[in-house]
Design a protein around this nucleic acid. Sequence first.
DNA 1: AGCATGATTGTTGCA
DNA 2: TGCAACAATCATGCT
Length: 166
Amino acid sequence: MTKGRGAARNSKEVLKPVDDRKVGKRKAASKPEKNTAQKSKKAKKDPNKPKRPPSAFFVFLEEFRKTFKEENPNVKAVSAVGKAGGEKWKSLTKAEKAPYEAKAAKRKAEYEKLINAYNKKQASSADDGDDESDKSKSEVNDDEDDEEGHEEDDEDDDDEEEEDDD
DNA sequence: AGCATGATTGTTGCA
DNA sequence: TGCAACAATCATGCT
């Protein structure tokens, strides 16, 4: 179940390009509403709140966007990159997505750490805390030196690899 | 002039 | 357990 998340909508997306993308009108976190005046302190934006970590697809997209724009400098529609990226993503094999997933996992790890600090901060300033005391600054720290670089070693037979099976 | 949208998939969070 | 919204991007469009 841990990795069976996508199984929910993973019925037969290959048959249909897009299932029911209800994301049709889901605005990003930029502006949830036209709330011009959020007097409520509760509705205050959270500058410290870490955004969700980019999934492997997004990590791949970041690089894909550069390539796509280089090969298609005329294309400026984000949707074009999204479609092309999505199609390409499906074309990628697990082994190719591995490095992206690895990076995504790394992002998630950092996100959890940030969330932890964020939660702590929220707890700390649960009542009023507008000026957050930087007491947890020592907590989260730059601690990355060498990551990845070992992991993918030998991919002889990937049982979960389903690409050339038609 | 400035913010929302569009399109992709994955992941996280809440009920 | 499952659904829903959000993560980046960037030009374009509407108010």
